[in-house]
Design a binder for these strands. Structure first.
Length: 382
DNA sequence: TCTGGGGTCCTAGGACCC
DNA sequence: TCTGGGGTCCTAGGACCC
């Protein structure tokens, strides 16, 4: 048996929990501070009832409800709460996987009464954090996740062999995790509307349509999926940051300053996780170039922002981009390995000491207390 | 005047090795 | 003149999730 725990309107609920003035009000959390230039990251249930949903532009949301409360996202707060909730769930002694910031998966084996455990977890979360969660129970991960959405908010739903067919018949195929817009329209063309339609197809049919994904889908619907709860926290496979500028720019100095800032942000997180990266991926978007993405793997792994920056510029040069007009850009590091201590050369030792001191200062006085001078240029382009 | 930012996994082609 | 089979790594791009 798997319990899938899904926090209700997580970011918005946290904001309402810490600020009683916001309780009961339509509220959105925006991914950025400027409430006219961002999208809805999370909407409170009061806002959802008005037709506001995450992903929507805040402009549209404000048109629907001009008195909407707007709070810019504060990731740190949500990560902290997420970790605390995870800790609570772990105390029950079953293997737990962290699925995303607001979702957890619990393998309770052949537990007799999973519903009462689900209730207890809901109560604990509410008692400690004043927020609610919905919990789905089923024989495997995909169905448990599907179940968690059936009774939102603050609900519990169980999919058993008795109600399986009925539940699948009542849910549309696109509510399955892994079925997005593209897959949905493919399914639609084949006359597949509900999960039950999908359930009745042969594995060969699904494989021909979606390859490996189709086989996985078949396996999960028929409760023989290979996905298991590992109970181990996963190491990240990539770490990246991206940013959309308020308007396009061609000025190389600005663009380089932004690439530098993003490189430094990524590097700082690498050091936090004691990881080093071999592969840099640079992503640029602009009105003339559309999306440009290129990556390169280097001999020596690094956690140094200035090195990641230099590598990013190499990728840009290699891509043959000559003074492109840029609207958005991103730097992502992959090929991650655990950092082995001990630099060989005096120069590297100096560099490591410098970075350590930098991290220490920023850790104590706030993230942008000390940074390379080049980054200052981004301040002139906010 | 259109729309963020953080990720994962899969596929497919090319380069290269034995 | 023509040419196997197996494998890994790298890169680009697409689909999907929250």
């Amino acid at each position: 048996m798997i319990l899938h725990i899904d926090m209700d309107a997580f970011f918005a609920s946290i904001e309402q929990a810490v600020n009683p003035r916001l309780k009961g009000k339509p509220l959105i959390v925006g991914s950025r501070g400027n409430k006219l230039h961002t999208v809805v990251c999370a909407a409170s249930y009061e806002a959802k009832r008005l037709g506001i949903s995450s992903g929507m532009s805040t402009r549209d949301a404000l048109r629907i409800c001009p008195s909407l409360e707007f709070v810019p996202a504060e990731q740190g707060k949500y990560i902290w709460t997420s970790e605390q909730v995870l800790g609570l769930i772990k105390e029950h002694g079953y293997p737990v996987d962290y699925v995303s910031i607001d979702e957890f998966r619990l393998d309770v084996g052949a537990l007799k009464n999973p519903v009462s455990l689900a209730k207890r977890i809901q109560e604990q979360i509410y008692a400690n954090f004043n927020i609610t969660a919905s919990i789905g129970i089923a024989g495997n991960c995909l169905l448990a996740k599907l179940a968690s959405k059936l009774n939102k908010p603050n609900g519990i739903a169980e999919i058993t062999s008795e109600n399986l067919v009925q539940v699948l018949n009542n849910t549309s195929a696109d509510s399955l995790c892994g079925v997005g817009v593209k897959t949905e329209s493919l399914l639609d063309a084949k006359g597949i509307k509900t999960c039950l339609d999908l359930y009745q197809k042969s594995p060969r049919f699904l494989e021909a349509l979606f390859g490996k994904n189709g086989l996985n889908l078949y396996a999960s619907l028929h409760s023989v999926e290979s996905l298991e709860v590992s109970g181990e926290p996963e190491k990240p496979k990539s770490i990246g940051h991206s940013y959309t500028l308020p308007r396009s720019t061609k000025t190389p100095g600005f663009i380089r300053a932004w690439i530098r800032l993003l490189s430094e942000m990524v590097a700082q997180r690498l050091r936090q996780e004691t990881l080093v990266s071999e592969t840099v991926h640079l992503w640029l978007n602009g009105p003339e170039i559309g999306n440009f993405g290129a990556q390169k793997t280097f001999q020596i792994a690094t956690d140094d922002g200035s090195e990641i920056y230099t590598r990013s510029l190499k990728i840009m040069v290699r891509g043959g981009l000559k003074e492109p007009k840029i609207r958005a850009l991103g730097v992502t590091c992959g090929g991650l390995k655990v950092c082995q201590e001990g630099a060989l050369f005096e120069e590297e030792k100096r560099r490591d000491r410098l970075l350590k001191v930098m991290d220490k200062i920023n850790g104590r006085f706030g993230d942008s207390t000390i940074y390379p001078a080049q980054v200052t240029l981004t301040r002139k382009f906010q």
